[in-house]
């Protein structure tokens, strides 16, 4: 079962950061809409099940 930590978009939150928690990561994706592109970060966990995520891209 793939997990977030194996995904290209997963960036672990460094230990010295305020929002660090064990396993916490940023899911960072480049997104586009009719007004242009932007980079979006949402909170995720390294062991989160990536099976249902349509954006999963293996590293």
């Amino acid at each position: 079962m793939p997990q977030c930590k194996e995904c290209k978009s997963f960036f672990p939150v460094p230990e010295n950061e305020w929002d660090y928690e064990k396993g916490a990561g940023d899911c960072i994706r480049e997104l586009r809409d009719n007004k242009g592109r932007y980079w979006h970060a949402r909170r995720t966990k390294d062991e989160m099940d990536a099976l249902k995520c349509t954006d999963y891209k293996k590293r």
Binding site: P14, D19, D26, W39, A41
Partner: peptide, 14 residues
């Protein structure tokens, strides 16, 4: 402060 640093992290990652 922590939230602002999330932006710092994101900008660097981009």
């Amino acid at each position: 402060i922590g939230w602002a640093r999330k932006y710092s992290r994101l900008a660097r990652i981009i």
